[in-house]
């Protein structure tokens, strides 16, 4: 791909992405409204008392008394002007709620992601180099064990060990509350809170990257261009880095792109177990409370994130694998 083609390519992709996001907004809207119950009936249910007037008032206040297509139109109009609406349940603009919670999730998933890719690719590469040996088996089984053990179980065991028995790390929350701290202390405090949830979430994905790296490295190692390089007498370490690993990273990148969309979903359980004030829990709680605007806001936010991520993935493809052309 020539440098001159890049801006046009990007523009095309962005336009397509916008269409996808819009389609997502519309589909989400209908999906969410298809779920039984509405926010008013839930508030009534949780308040332990209700009468017809109460429900009527709430529905009018929430705009639920309007026909569905009018609600959709109002929402779309809002989204187009980047106004994500208002959570009537929480009496707050959705964008405020999202901005409050997004950094926590990005921090958690970012840390888990780096940990997973770093450890996973290393393990996968090590296993591939020692394929068929005991080292390979140990790494494979270890990766599998991470994968096959339910998240909350891992989390709980880590907490039992590090918080209850050893008393090294806090068991929940994102920061100490009600303690005066300087800047550096505050950062370290958050770091301490981050270790357990980050580890728990990351371990799950370590397996995915380890196995993928191993599988593709073995495959690439057997391909002609590697053989050629070897025949030419290129040093083994260089072959591994320049030829094998680089090409084996393709599926890894694919998976990283996919994971962007799962960041939120995967963090729901971890955010719940560790009381991490992130967006995954916000989405889950909004779903249970039928807080439509918030849930759609989260979906909108994640869809924009994923679309951006996929764009980056595709560009990386073009960079890593010279055989693949970015088809505009």
């Amino acid at each position: 791909m020539g440098a001159s083609k890049l801006p046009g390519y990007l523009l095309g992709r962005v336009v397509k992405a916008a269409i996808v996001v819009l389609a997502i907004v519309v589909c989400n809207f209908f999906l969410i409204h298809a779920a039984p119950g509405d926010p008013a009936s839930i508030i009534a249910g949780q308040s332990g008392a209700a009468d017809a007037k109460f429900l009527e008032q709430l529905r009018a206040q929430f705009g639920l008394d309007q026909p569905l297509h009018v609600q959709l139109w109002l929402y779309l109009k809002g989204v187009l002007t980047l106004d994500l609406g208002f959570s009537h349940r929480q009496q707050m603009p959705v964008s405020t709620l999202l901005w409050d919670r997004l950094p926590a999730t990005l921090l958690l998933t970012g840390a888990a992601f780096l940990f997973a890719v770093g450890l996973g690719v290393t393990m996968g590469a090590l296993a591939a180099r020692r394929v068929g040996t005991w080292g390979d088996s140990v790494i494979t089984v270890l990766a599998l064990a991470f994968y096959a053990t339910p998240l909350f179980w891992v989390g709980l065991m880590l907490v039992l060990l590090f918080s209850v028995t050893l008393e090294w790390l806090p068991s929940f929350g994102m920061a100490s509350v009600g303690v005066e701290m300087s800047g550096l202390e505050a950062v370290l405090d958050v770091g301490r809170h981050l270790i357990l949830p980050g580890l728990t979430l990351g371990l799950f994905y370590v397996a995915v990257y380890a196995r993928l790296t191993r599988a593709t490295m073995l495959e690439v190692a057997d391909q002609d261009f590697v053989k050629t390089a070897r025949a030419k007498g290129v040093p083994e370490g260089r072959i591994l880095r320049r030829h094998i690993l680089r090409n084996a990273l393709l599926p890894v990148i694919t998976f990283a792109g996919i994971q962007a969309g799962q960041l939120v979903g995967g963090s729901i359980l971890v955010e719940t177990v560790f009381a991490w004030p992130g967006i995954g829990r916000l989405a889950f709680e909004a779903l249970l409370a039928r807080d439509y605007q918030v849930l759609m806001g989260v979906f909108f936010c994640t869809s924009v994130m994923v679309v951006l991520f996929n764009l980056v993935t595709d560009l990386l493809y073009a960079l890593v694998d010279p055989r693949v052309e970015a088809s505009a």
Partner: peptide
């Protein structure tokens, strides 16, 4: 008032004196 959505974490918070 801390928000702790998981019952086992709540139990732990109480046990550890948090």
């Amino acid at each position: 008032y801390r928000v702790v959505p998981d019952s086992q974490s709540r139990r732990l918070a109480l046990e550890t004196g948090q």
